[in-house]
Amino acid sequence: MRSNGHKHKSFTSRKNFFTLRSAEHRQLSRQGEDLPGINPPGRAPPFSIFTVLILTLLALLTVATFLWNLLVLATILRVKAFHRVPHNLVASTAVSDVLVAALVMPLSLVKELSAGRRWRLGRELCLVWVCFDVLCCTASIWNVTAIALDRYWSITRHLQYTLLARRRISNVMIALTWLLSAAISLAPLLGWGETYSPEQERCQVSQDPSYTIVSTGGAFYLPLCVVLFVYWKIYKASKFHMGVRRRNAVVPLPEAAQVRGRASQEPQMVFTARRAAITFQTDGETWKEQKEKKAALMVGILIGVFVLCWIPFFITELISPLCSCNIPPVWKSIFLWLGYSNSFFNPLIYTAFNKNYNNAFKNLFVKQR
């Protein structure tokens, strides 16, 4: 009887175990169906229409980012008038954005296509991908910062910021941008944290808390403070110049102005000035004012798009390792690709405010035909 009872309990325990495992498997299957790209191991991902649409848009974003930045580079190389500042800063930004589209975004798309967003391309390719991801994205961010600084100095220090000084400073900024980006990206390869986990098939930027603070600070939060300070100074300078211009303007007379001769013995002489708007303004001042407004608008849009694209990713990137928060992978992917999209918007912004680029694009296609 004891033996039968023991067998019955053993059978009941096994039945409950398999029932529990089956329930867990069904729960994982439901979670995998809810999140695109998250599926149990060994099961083919069921690509829905929404998932296919999202992946298609990401692929188009990758191709468009690569082609648009490549077009900017080709234009700068072919047009001799662009072989000077600030176009060398634009060229450096386009190089970093081209590398993002060519080396980083395609492998990120492959990772999105894998079940559970697992990395199945090996350790070596993981290290290369993470290294170029940090290098190119950091360089792109600092190049945007360099463009903002160049516009700021050209507006506020146009007398001291000569063409020679501008060329030297821009070359120094480009060199520092790539050196800093390389230092941040190569640190994990020298042992500062781990990027690849073979057990979990995970490939990501090092989650070491000290590296997270240094890398996010150097790659985003420091340039963010710089660009916000620059735009605040540009805005103040623009408001100051507008105030000076208003104080120096000649106000039209509301009524006829009459000036009578002081000599009582002489006949009275009356001078009447007709009602008209009198403006003392040279062509140079008009051109300068328009240039300042255009530069301030361009820098404002460039900074605004930069902040909107990157701040969600870097907030989660900083908070997640420090508080051990479990952020859903789908949101990590959304924030990451939103940051990648900044490489697509950069050339659109700084070429939209320059008619020379539009004319050069047209001439480039006309010559090819």
Rank of each mutant, 00 (worst) to 15 (best):
G300E: 03
V330R: 03
L308P: 02
V305S: 06
V305F: 02
G304Y: 10
C325D: 01
M298E: 13
G300L: 09
P312Q: 08
M298I: 08
F314L: 10
N326P: 01
I301V: 15
I301A: 08
I303Y: 03
G300I: 11
M298P: 07
P329N: 13
C309Y: 02
F306E: 02
P329A: 13
L297V: 15
F314V: 14
C325F: 04
I327C: 06
T316L: 02
F313I: 07
E317F: 07
A296Q: 07
W287Y: 11
G304V: 01
L297W: 14
I301S: 08
K293A: 15
L322M: 13
C323I: 06
I311A: 02
N326I: 10
L297A: 15
S320Y: 07
T316Q: 02
P312C: 10
V307G: 05
K288Q: 15
W310T: 09
V299C: 11
I319K: 03
C325K: 02
V299A: 10
K288R: 15
P312F: 03
C309K: 00
S324P: 00
S324L: 03
P321R: 00
F306Q: 02
T286S: 05
I303D: 06
L297C: 14
P329H: 11
E289F: 08
Q290C: 11
T286L: 09
C323T: 04
L322C: 10
F306C: 01
K288H: 14
S324I: 00
F313T: 04
V299K: 06
T286P: 06
I319V: 14
K294T: 15
P321F: 05
V299S: 04
T316R: 01
N326G: 02
E292H: 12
G304S: 06
K288S: 14
S320D: 05
V305N: 01
K288P: 00
F314C: 09
I311V: 12
L318D: 08
C309E: 06
W310A: 02
P329E: 12
P312V: 10
K293L: 15
M298N: 01
S320Q: 09
I319T: 07
T286F: 10
W287F: 13
N326Q: 14
L297F: 14
E289Q: 10
A295M: 11
L322S: 09
L297M: 14
I311H: 03
I301M: 11
S324N: 09
E289I: 01
A296I: 04
V307T: 12
K291E: 07
I315C: 13
E292L: 12
K291R: 15
Q290L: 11
I301Q: 05
W310P: 05
K293N: 15
Q290Y: 09
P312K: 07
F306N: 02
I311R: 03
W287E: 11
K294N: 13
V305T: 11
L302F: 00
E289P: 04
M298S: 11
W287A: 12
L318V: 08
C325G: 08
S324G: 00
P328R: 08
E292A: 11
M298F: 06
N326H: 12
K288V: 12
C323V: 08
V330A: 00
W287D: 04
Q290N: 13
K288N: 15
E317P: 01
V307Y: 04
S320N: 04
P329M: 13
V305A: 09
G304P: 03
A295S: 14
F314I: 11
V330L: 08
F314N: 04
M298H: 03
